[in-house]
């Protein structure tokens, strides 16, 4: 099962990409674990997660082709 990832701000800088695909990820918890293993800097970075544009707080099981966006807070004004 493929999912689409989108990263914004510092998340895109840490991962080195703003859009990519991942396979074999079942839910948001697994996604976060996987990303933090690949990119340890993410474990100390805060960000919100949106599944198909909806911001979620709890664990969500993915469906084929879901788009998951990772949005960090900005403070600049």
């Amino acid at each position: 099962m493929d999912i689409n990832l989108l990263a914004f701000g510092i998340i895109a800088e840490i991962t080195g990409k703003s859009a990519w695909k991942m396979a074999g990820i079942k839910d948001t918890n697994e996604l976060i674990n996987n990303l933090e293993t690949q990119f340890p800097a993410l474990s100390t970075t805060s960000f919100s997660i949106a599944v198909n544009r909806k911001v979620i707080q709890d664990n969500i099981i993915f469906n084929e082709n879901d788009t998951i966006a990772l949005l960090p807070p900005f403070s600049g004004g």
Binding site: T44, S46, S48, Q57, P72, P73, S75, G77
Partner: peptide, 15 residues
């Protein structure tokens, strides 16, 4: 609702 917790100082970057 969007950001329940503020970021840690280490990741709180500003302009």
């Amino acid at each position: 609702d969007l950001f329940p917790k503020p970021p840690s100082l280490d990741s709180a970057i500003s302009c």
